[in-house]
């Protein structure tokens, strides 16, 4: 199939962009050339405007020559659905019938709380509010340089559902060592009744969950909404598994 303007098969699309050249006939020609290379042919420059020093902004309309084959589209599915804050709150209410308790910390000598703060603080990250913003979550942020025994102790005392640990420092694989220590301590202290263990940081490989003994690993650029959605999904599963 082709894009739809006002007639089936017309292939019409709109496109806007800026070229770093002053506005003149050559600039418009350059814009058309780009459109043609992108598969828009014929295309029309419907608007061009000089901006700043030596830039031109274009709006183009035109027909693309490409076809899309819907049967060949592959959708990568994450194991959990991405929910809005409202849906997260509703789901927790429904499945847990109480607040989801989340404990966050940086362990070992790592003093970089940027990651855990971005996920937990109301301020949040990338335009998404942090977990503190979710009414149905109770969030405890223990901050930096928390020892593993202390974390286990607090997790038990607060009857928490999930422990979030962020690790930035990776010297001599400190992040991997710390994470293994974390999962071993929880296994020993609480066995299968341990909370969900979630770690995050820019240098983690998300596929290493089993090796590190944790439930989920989040990499660079993870937003609070993704973490909240995952926790909601996993807490429900965890509960079913335990029951």
């Amino acid at each position: 199939m082709r894009p739809y303007g006002d007639t089936t098969g017309d292939g019409m699309v709109q496109l806007s962009f800026t070229l770093p050249i002053p506005h003149d006939a050559r600039a418009e020609g350059a814009a058309l050339q780009l459109a043609a290379k992108m598969g828009m042919e014929p295309a029309m420059v419907v608007h061009a405007r000089a901006m700043s020093d030596g830039f031109t902004f274009f709006v183009l309309y035109g027909s693309v020559t490409h076809l899309v084959d819907v049967s060949k589209v592959e959708v990568i599915e994450r194991e959990y659905p991405l929910l809005s804050a409202k849906d997260v709150n509703a789901a927790i209410k429904k499945t847990l019938r109480r607040k989801l308790v989340v404990l966050g910390a940086c362990i070992g000598t790592d003093a970089h709380t940027v990651g855990i703060d971005a996920i937990l603080n109301v301020k949040g990250f990338a335009g998404e509010k942090g977990l503190e913003y979710y009414r149905e979550m109770r969030v405890l942020n223990l901050g930096a340089q928390v020892s593993v025994p202390e974390l286990v102790h607090r997790a038990r005392a607060e009857r928490c559902d999930a422990v979030l640990v962020s690790q930035v420092v990776t010297q001599r694989d400190a992040h991997l060592r710390n994470t293994r220590e974390l999962s071993a301590a929880f296994r020993e202290a609480m066995g299968t009744r341990r909370p969900l263990l979630v770690v995050g940081g820019p240098r983690f490989d998300p596929s290493m969950t089993e090796e590190l003994g944790v439930d989920r690993i989040f990499g660079r650029g993870t937003t609070p909404g993704e973490v909240a959605s995952y926790l909601t999904f996993a807490a429900a599963q965890h509960r079913e598994g335990a029951a």
Binding site: S16, F17, T18, R49, M51, S52, F55, F57, G127
Partner: peptide, 13 residues
């Protein structure tokens, strides 16, 4: 907003 950090053209518009 919420898509990209503003481009030159976004600011101009």
């Amino acid at each position: 907003e919420a898509v990209v950090t503003p481009w030159l053209s976004d600011r101009d518009l």
